[in-house]
Design a protein around this nucleic acid. Structure first.
Length: 588
RNA sequence: GGGGCCGUAGCUCAAUUGGUUAGAGCGCAGCCCUGUCACGGCUGAGGUUGCGGGUUCGAGCCCCGUCGGCCUCGCCA
């Protein structure tokens, strides 16, 4: 080793020792006669002193050092003089009096300062090797490591086996767009990178590996968001001979262990469980942020009795009037903000308008208040649990639009009004999802979760009669408004599986062709099984309170799935294309 | 595929209604400074205003297109 210690570990107890440190020049403070260098590595910083009185040659050498040069210093650990220690540094009570200095590598002038205002992200991604030196990223990488370590320990202690599954698989219907890999050997055929190890892990259950987990890389070729990357990591889990409760309990244990070990936070377990219907009604989302309240309230029954045409007609047409109580919001949102800003906000979710009242002197106040008589106004205030100074906002529309618009509005208001502590954690289960979703555009049923999800036993008979009413044995773990995990009990009976395929309009021959291997496996003694997958990147993000997934991934991609560091994706040689039997269309 | 925001010195930003030589802080270079820790002081260099076109006597500013980044709707079993 070129060093005896790291830059974060020297303390008063080391005083008198001669040590060797290596690292980067974080700061230099040149006073001519004395030069101070903050030496940085990922463990911390140590102040190095180059004193003219000690050695004029080394002091001269030190004056030529610049930011981010990589150096090795041999020196004596000395206590700082009285009153000159630095409380901001862990090593602030000591400094290293340099005896020899070796420049291991000069650095070009860095493109920006690590501790200043952050430059635009494009630049940070291009200079990722440099950005990775930033404390926030190092914190994320360290927490990420500790998280995966804790996860592996937890599953190991509970009898799970980590099994790797292929990255080169076959494309399956439904789901996200696949990343495809052309085959050289099989002209015209393609592998698909896994969207998840879903089918493999089910086959592992058939193979008798009744407790499986994997830290698995997954790929989805869809448009990106602040919390989505084209390749991401799942903590993938599958268990045999279990019911839903067993999986939830297992993950309760995992999550509470992780929070306790990594964050020192004790979560109340079992984590609360809410039905899909309940959270949709109350929060307009299947991933509600429960760090704050502000539930959605339905006032259709009152509104339809009013003389306000829009409300009456909406209810008459089968729609509803639902809204939020913004506590103390009456003087926080001006008429202009409501009529323009917030209206445009809900319009993104197809809401045609945003009605509102301010509560004043126990009455409603707004341009539409006149359509509500005194009793109706009182009833609304009571139902909304409102008081003077509150602002009431409403969307009049069908259920799905009310949910989408108000769910999003609820999150926005809470953020603006700081209704929650950003360092708080709130996790819950959402269960009883519908098995199927009616796809209005294509006039067919889609799987809400995925096509291998087992219906709730009591609902199996509805497969033939009323598919929309079937509940699935599926479950999402929601934390601070993010979907942090998702899973289900799988179908182990090929006959039930076939029925679900039928409903999804996956023809028998197509099912056989595209994942007949799974159906075949299910016919050879498949145990009842189920599982779940946790989004590792999102968990890291959540636990750090970051709002961007790129900051918890060492080498992330941009929104257009480019890698600014390497330039991927990039063109390839004509020969490579020939080998793969691929011919590019001329640019049009 | 749709909507929004952004792009000016290495970085973060400014630049009046379209008007003289595009400024500041940090960084960079040189000099000074023996107790700093966001050290300080003096001097200096540094610009194809993302790119292309248009309007105009005149464009960083207005218009059209394009590239890139971010946020978002759709999408993400």
């Amino acid at each position: 080793m070129l060093r005896t210690h790291t830059a974060g570990e020297l303390r008063k107890s080391h005083v008198g020792q001669t040590v060797e440190l290596c690292g980067w020049v974080d700061k230099y403070r040149d006073h001519a006669g004395i030069v101070f260098i903050d030496l940085r590595d990922r463990y911390g910083k140590t102040q190095i002193k180059f004193d003219l009185a000690d050695n004029s040659e080394i002091q001269k050498q030190a004056r030529s050092l610049r930011y981010e040069d990589v150096i090795k210093v041999t020196g004596e650990v000395i206590a700082r003089p009285d009153g000159l220690s630095n409380a901001k540094l862990e090593t602030g009570e000591i400094e290293l009096r340099a005896i020899t200095l070796e420049v291991l590598n000069k650095s070009l002038t860095p493109p920006y300062m690590l501790d200043g205002d952050l430059p635009n992200e494009e630049l940070r991604l291009k200079y990722r090797f440099f950005d990775l030196r930033r404390a926030e990223l190092q914190k994320a990488m360290i927490l990420r490591h500790r998280l995966t370590k804790t996860v592996r320990d937890y599953f190991d202690e509970n009898g799970f086996l980590e099994v790797e599954t292929p990255m080169l698989g076959r494309s399956t219907p439904e789901g996200a767009r696949d990343y495809l890999v052309p085959s050289r050997v099989h002209e015209g055929s393609f592998y698909a990178l896994p969207q998840s190890p879903q089918i493999y892990k089910q086959i592992l259950m058939v193979g008798g590996y009744d407790r499986y987990f994997q830290i698995a890389r997954c790929f989805r070729d869809e448009d990106l968001r602040a919390d989505r990357q084209p390749e991401f990591t799942q903590i993938d889990v599958e268990m045999s001979f279990v019911e839903m409760n067993d999986i939830l309990t297992t993950i309760d244990g995992l999550v509470s262990t992780v929070f306790e070990k990594i964050r020192g936070v004790k979560l109340p377990t079992p984590l609360p469980r809410y039905s899909y219907r309940e959270v949709m009604d109350k929060y307009g989302s299947d991933k509600p942020d429960l760090r704050f309240g502000m539930p959605i309230v339905d006032i259709s029954d009152i509104a339809k009795e009013s003389t306000f045409g829009v409300f009456k007609e909406t209810v008459a047409a089968g729609g509803m009037i639902r809204g939020l109580t913004i506590k103390g919001g009456a003087d926080k949102y001006s008429r202009k903000m409501l009529d323009q800003d917030l209206k445009a906000f809900v319009a993104d979710f197809k809401a045609k308008g945003l009605a509102y009242f301010k509560v004043t002197d126990g009455k409603l106040d707004s341009s539409i208040a006149k359509f509500f008589d005194e009793a109706q106004q009182k009833a609304i205030i009571e139902k909304m649990e409102a008081e003077n100074g509150d602002l009431l906002v409403y969307v009049a529309d069908k259920y799905s639009v009310c949910c989408a618009a108000l769910g999003a509005l609820r999150n926005r208001i809470a953020k603006e009004q700081k209704l929650y502590d950003a360092h708080d954690f709130n996790c819950c289960w959402v269960i009883d999802f519908p098995l199927l979703n009616w796809n209005e555009d294509e006039k067919r049923w889609d799987a809400e979760h995925h096509p291998f999800c087992y219906p709730v036993k009591d609902d199996v008979e509805l497969l033939e009669t009323d598919p929309g009413k079937i509940r699935a044995q599926s479950y999402d773990l929601v934390c601070n408004g993010y979907e942090a995990a998702s899973g289900s009990i799988r179908i182990h009976d090929p006959k039930v599986q076939q029925k679900v395929f039928d409903l999804l309009n996956i023809k028998q021959e197509e099912a056989e062709r595209r994942f007949g291997f799974l159906l075949e496996a299910l016919r050879y003694g498949a145990p009842p099984h189920g599982g779940i997958a946790l989004g590792l990147d999102r968990w890291v993000m959540l636990m750090l309170g970051y709002d961007n997934i790129r900051d918890v991934i060492a080498f992330p991609k941009t929104q257009k799935a480019s890698d600014m560091l390497t330039g991927a994706p990039a063109e390839v040689d004509a020969k490579q294309l020939r080998d793969l039997h691929i011919q590019l269309k001329p640019q049009s």
